[in-house]
Design a protein around this nucleic acid. Structure first.
Length: 486
RNA sequence: GGCUCGUUGGUCAAGAGGUUAAGACGCCGCCCUCUCAAGGCGGAAUCACGAGUUCGAUUCUCGUACGAGCUGCCA
């Protein structure tokens, strides 16, 4: 049988990594078996609807490659299914009324006032947590009369109060609850829209969803959904509930945490592929020890039975590492292309940006790291001459001054400023004097960059900076050291 | 509070009765080195607790603790 899954977000804002992971797993479960993946926008809550949220979802899925393969025609492709659109066909009301006719659901005219006071009331020392079926006892005539009068109503599920209900989850196994715990949840709201609880079941069935994959938060309400399937006589789908993703404090990710949404991560300089790869491993692991997976490789390897049950902490540190791995593995041409905007933000000078990109490629974890590595190319920063002192290199202000003075005429004489030529020339000087490499290179690199660390060695930097700028900076270094001496 | 679920190093995790309890991130050290990275090598660090079952429990059962989710005319 073909596997059919769906990603069913509500358009209420940005897409969190938790949402994205649900989409990813739903996609992978279907694609692993060559199945069908769908997108269904659950916009039945008119109040929470956020303008543009559907577009965000759409673009996020596009960027991550989680493309759905069924839906209403749109621009020569498939649009998403949208519940508010489906509602116009009267589908949800039709099915709700069917349940009313079967006695599995009923009209309820209770106002919010009564519901609230009900919640506060205490029976036998226990708080009431489920609706008291007050309107179930209404006669058919009373219901008709209320409806004719245009009284606002909802339709509620009619759950039994005795016995138990069991449902099966592929990961969590059988879960049984007392029916007395089952609230007569609302199926149709007073504004005519279905609730998630109802629309979800109706849509999953009518769209022939075989595997209902969703967050763990639905685990405890799933028995109620099962009763709905049974009331309709529909086949219950395979359930796969996913463990939560939390922040470092083991709390559910919140929009305020800043790095939680996919868009934020892109802004923080992460690559979509790396994010997808990382979150795939948040709650799932392959049989071997592999960690780097393309989407296609994930499709091939993904076995949902290996999804874990316990929540996972979103570790930005490991994401950073993984992102860096993607940079390192990336074709240098492609990296150059992607990094260019970030480089140009810092460097306006006419220097070989391709080489700058190459220097930085193995040294960064996110695009945002680029800036700190290369800012000195643009302008020599103010620096402290204490930087000339390096224990291991056996350098200090005095030795540095001498080296810089020695080396200045050599650099002025030097015509070829290619890296290799510079290195060869300096090695000659080093050898002649019996110095260690670092003894000479450290002061030069310091003078030329004004930084403690740089994305390349002294000669590489000089080669990029060019002769003129190099001379200027070396002279500046000598000047600084001399003025400190006196 | 009630219900449901979960618990292997700081984090992601493998292991499903007998293992020196993998691997990765991070951390620390060493090597390499014209700095920093990268790369190589090594190190510290884990089965929440208590009973049971068993010749033997990280692995099975039950409790406890802790954590999380649900308890909306939100999804």
């Amino acid at each position: 049988m073909e596997i059919r899954t769906r990603y069913a977000p509500s358009p209420t804002g940005k897409m969190h990594v938790g949402n994205l992971r649900s989409a990813l797993y739903e996609f992978l479960i279907a694609k692993h078996e060559d199945g069908t993946f769908m997108l269904r926008i659950e916009d039945t809550d008119q109040e929470r609807f956020v303008e543009g949220a559907t577009e965000i979802i759409y673009h996020t899925l596009e960027k991550t490659g989680l493309v759905h393969d069924e839906g209403p025609d749109k621009d020569g492709g498939y649009g998403p299914y949208v519940q508010s659109e489906r509602m116009k066909t009267g589908i949800y009301m039709k099915y709700a009324k069917q349940l009313v006719d079967q006695g599995q659901a009923y009209y309820c005219f209770c106002d919010k006032c009564r519901l609230e006071s009900l919640k506060k009331s205490v029976v036998d020392g226990k708080e009431i947590t489920v609706y008291d079926k007050h309107c179930l006892s209404l006669s058919k005539e009373e219901v008709e009369k209320n409806l004719a009068e245009g009284k606002p109503f909802v339709i509620r599920q009619n759950n039994p109060t005795e016995g138990t209900t069991t449902f099966h989850d592929e990961l969590y196994g059988d879960i049984t609850v007392d029916n007395s715990e089952l609230d007569d949840m609302i199926l149709i709201k007073s504004d005519g829209y279905p609730t998630y609880n109802f629309a979800n079941v109706v849509d999953d069935h009518t769209m022939n969803i075989t595997h209902v994959v969703r967050g763990n938060e639905y685990l405890s309400s799933s028995p109620k959904y099962n009763r709905l399937y049974e009331a309709f006589g529909w086949e219950v789908p395979t359930y796969i509930h996913l463990p939560l993703i939390t922040d470092e404090n083991h709390k559910k990710l919140s929009k305020r945490s800043g790095h939680a949404s996919f868009e934020d991560l892109l802004e923080q300089g992460f690559l979509p592929e790396a994010v997808v790869n990382y979150i795939a491993l948040l709650g799932w692991s392959p049989e071997d020890n592999r960690e780097i997976f393309s989407l296609d490789e994930l499709i091939k390897e993904f076995d949902y039975h290996r999804i874990s049950k316990s929540p996972a902490v979103f570790d930005i540190q490991k994401l950073r590492w993984m992102n860096g791995e993607y940079f390192k593995a990336m074709d240098s041409e492609k990296f150059y292309e992607l990094a260019l905007p970030y480089i140009k933000e810092v460097i306006t000078k006419d220097i070989d940006l391709k080489k700058v990109a190459a220097m930085v490629q193995t040294r960064i974890e996110t695009f945002l790291d680029i800036k700190d590595h290369i800012d000195f190319f643009e302008a020599l920063p103010e620096y402290d001459i204490a930087m000339y002192t390096h224990k291991k290199m056996k350098t200090n202000a005095e030795t540095s001054l001498q080296v810089l003075k020695d080396v200045l005429p050599l650099l002025e004489k030097q015509e070829d400023y290619e890296n290799d030529a510079l290195y060869e020339m300096l090695c000659g000087y080093i050898k002649e004097n019996g110095y260690k490499n670092g003894y000479v290179m450290w002061p030069i690199r310091t003078a030329v960059s004004g930084k403690q660390m740089t994305p390349g060695g002294a000669t590489e930097l000089m080669s990029l900076l060019g002769k003129d700028e190099t001379i200027v900076r070396i002279k500046k270094g000598i000047e600084l050291l001399e003025s400190a001496e006196s």
